[in-house]
């Protein structure tokens, strides 16, 4: 077998294994409470009947591993269970919200990725000049700030003082694409700022690293133009680290939406999960948790596989 195929297959198998363990961990995460989960969910003042009802709902009389297998097989069949709080099937609760969250993250990614890579290349090209240092200070500040700080500053300036955009990102079914885009301006800006800062710093580091390679010196000593050195000699080698940076940051984005959705009261999965945690609605927490975690695992897996594919030493094995 070609070593490339073998490596990718190994990586995919490892990814599948990781997903399985992650699902078990998330299930176990809600089981670690010493004593009775039902009692803990309802609090000390709960009536015995209510406790009994929840115990039955969660199937607490059966061993944990059987409940896990049930839960997992249900999940794989698309049955995400029922909410404890309002008795609605979780699948219905999540459907629209998942779409909203993906929309928010997608728009942010579409904006942030090109900007961050461009800035990273510019900073690397003009490294150790005032421009590079200025970009460095700004991005360092941006990654130092909590998302909600950036979010509220943007709301204060652009929504409350300038009235340019709405402060609350309300979207609803049937909204036109343009209206939706307008509604999510601020959350997208908030997410983008943080992600751009991370991605740009990592892109810069990757390019500086490649530009310091001896083969770049070889290219310079051949008298090649700067454009050719960058495009032909640096880029193919910087590609794999940059792809990695992008995908890792997309994974970050998926989780970063949680706080941003709460700031902007955006009807997405993050908001739903936080509410469910506050209400101790365990089945909803499990379902949303596994969706977030799986997305994260899959994106990181993609990064690994792309990195393997972009490596010439593996592609053209001896």
């Amino acid at each position: 077998m070609h070593p490339l195929v073998k490596l990718v297959a190994q990586r995919l198998a490892l990814g599948a294994g990781t997903l399985l363990v992650v699902s078990a961990l998330i299930f176990a995460g809600t089981e670690i409470l010493p004593g009775d989960v039902a009692q803990a969910i309802l609090g000390q003042s709960a009536t015995p009947e209510a406790v009994a009802a929840i115990r039955e709902d969660l199937g607490l009389d059966r061993p944990a591993w059987i409940r896990y297998l049930d839960w997992l097989s249900g999940f794989l069949r698309g049955d995400l269970g029922t909410s404890l709080a309002n008795r609605v099937p979780i699948g219905e609760m999540i459907a629209g919200r998942l779409e909203n969250t993906l929309f928010l993250a997608g728009v942010a990614a579409a904006f942030a990725v090109p900007v961050a890579i461009t800035l990273g290349i510019v900073a690397a090209r003009y490294r150790e000049t005032w421009l590079d240092k200025a970009i460095s200070i700004v991005t360092l500040s941006a990654i130092s700030m909590p998302e909600f700080f950036i979010g509220y500053i943007l709301i204060f300036v652009f929504a409350v003082k300038l009235f340019w955009v709405p402060s609350i990102a309300s979207v609803f079914p049937g909204m036109s694409f343009a209206d939706r885009l307008y509604a999510v301006t601020l959350p997208v800006a908030t997410l983008s700022l943080v992600v751009i800062a991370h991605m740009m710093r990592m892109t810069r580091a990757a390019i500086v690293n490649v530009m310091a390679s001896p083969y770049i010196e070889t290219a310079e000593l051949k008298g090649l133009t700067r454009a050719r050195i960058t495009l032909r000699h640096a880029l193919p080698n910087a590609l794999s680290p940059i792809i990695n940076v992008v995908v890792i940051n997309l994974a970050y984005l998926v989780v970063g939406v949680v706080v941003v959705e709460v700031v902007f009261v955006y009807p997405g999965m993050g908001q739903l999960m936080v509410d469910a945690v506050a209400k101790r609605d365990v089945p909803v927490v499990q379902a949303t948790g596994i969706i977030f975690a799986a997305t994260y695992v899959l994106l990181n897996l993609t990064a690994d596989v792309l990195a393997i594919l972009a490596n010439p030493r593996i592609r053209h094995a001896r």
């Binding site: 998330i26 809600t30 999960m273 927490v285 977030f292």
Partner: peptide
């Protein structure tokens, strides 16, 4: 540790805090 790191930190914390005070 790799497996633990495969779960986003915030999500894992939320799951645990759903049952722990």
């Amino acid at each position: 540790i790799d497996t633990l790191m495969a779960i986003p930190t915030l999500i894992f914390a939320l799951v645990v805090l759903a049952v722990l005070p």
